[in-house]
Structure formats: structure tokens, C-alpha cells
């Protein structure tokens, strides 16, 4: 009988301890970020959808239309084609579309791009009314992009290299 009473008393005591914890949190400041008014800065390595890099010297893309990213992509989201123009060494990029509805942000395309012509963008609030809104024409968006001088280091060998 005694341990039954002890259990009842320790039980009610545990209830009051629980209440004490929640009331303490009631008076503590709020933790949440009020989204539309405040936004969180994205980490430098955040993987948004991929975008073409504007080379600071030429102001053009570095893409040599080799199609490595197209082959590496598991879900065939990237379509790249270019054309030969006389007087220009190598192919010129004419179309670079990304079907973001199927992209799984795995990074195999960025990793397989030898001239480092594509990188991850930082925007995350992508709202669209139709599926077609998610077929991005990266070549067209290239003009609006700021020239990216320092590329985000990825796949670097060790921490020292990441420093510079």
C-alpha cells in the first residue's frame, strides 16, 4: 500500500515538474523566424537549382557544349546543344534548358563539368503556377546574373585549399 501511495505522490510531483518546464518556456523569447518579414541567409554551399556561371573576363558563359552534364544527370533534366560557328574555336552554346521538376540536386552535373561552367544558385522560394514554369532556360537567365568572380570551392582536396 505504501509504494502505491508513493507512486501517486511521485506521479503528481512529476506532473507539476512538467508544468514548471512549459511555463518557463512560455516566458522565454520566441525562436521562430517570421518568414515573409525576416529571411534566413542561405549557407554558401546551399544547393539551389543549377545556373550558368558568367565568366568575368568575357562576360559570356564558359560552357564548351561538351554535354558531360547531360550524360551525368540520373534523371535527364539537362538539355544542351550548340553549333559550330566559323571563326570561333569550339562550339557556341545556343540552348541550355534545365527541367527542374525532375532534378534531385545530387550535384553530379556540377561535379562532372570540367570548365566549371555551372554552379548551384542560392534561391529557394520557387513558386510557379504550372509545371512549365519550372523549365528554366539558363542561357536566357545568364544575362541577368552578376559576374561571379570567386567560384564556390567544391571538391577541393583539403581545408587549406578551401581557405583562399
Amino acid at each position: 500500500m505504501i509504494d502505491y501511495l508513493k507512486e501517486v505522490i511521485s506521479g503528481t510531483w512529476s506532473l507539476f515538474v512538467g508544468l514548471g518546464i512549459t511555463i518557463r518556456y512560455f516566458f522565454q523569447p520566441v525562436v521562430t523566424v517570421q518568414y515573409p518579414y525576416q529571411t534566413l541567409p542561405m549557407a554558401p554551399r546551399f544547393r539551389g537549382h543549377i545556373e550558368l556561371v558568367k565568366d568575368e573576363e568575357t562576360g559570356e558563359t564558359r560552357c564548351i557544349v561538351c554535354g558531360m552534364c547531360q550524360k551525368a544527370c540520373p534523371s535527364h533534366c539537362i538539355t544542351v546543344n550548340g553549333e559550330k560557328r566559323e571563326g570561333v574555336q569550339g562550339k557556341v552554346l545556343t540552348e541550355y534548358t534545365l527541367d527542374f521538376t525532375r532534378c534531385s540536386l545530387c550535384g553530379l552535373c556540377v561535379e562532372s563539368c570540367t570548365p566549371k561552367a555551372i554552379t548551384f544558385s542560392k534561391d529557394y522560394n520557387l513558386a510557379g503556377l504550372s509545371k512549365e514554369a519550372y523549365i528554366f532556360d539558363l542561357k536566357a537567365e545568364l544575362s541577368s546574373l552578376p559576374a561571379q568572380t570567386k567560384l564556390m570551392p567544391f571538391g577541393c582536396k583539403n581545408r587549406l585549399e578551401a581557405k583562399n
Partner: peptide
């Protein structure tokens, strides 16, 4: 790693970045 939930951080022979 760059992502928050569905990571794709490991590669054969090591990891994506340091």
C-alpha cells in the same frame, strides 16, 4: 553538404567536399 534532408554528400572513395 548543401542539402538539409536528402543528402547526396558521399562519393565513391571519399566525400563531396571538406
Amino acid at each position: 553538404t548543401g542539402s538539409r534532408l536528402t543528402y547526396c554528400y558521399f562519393r565513391f572513395g571519399g566525400v563531396y567536399n571538406d
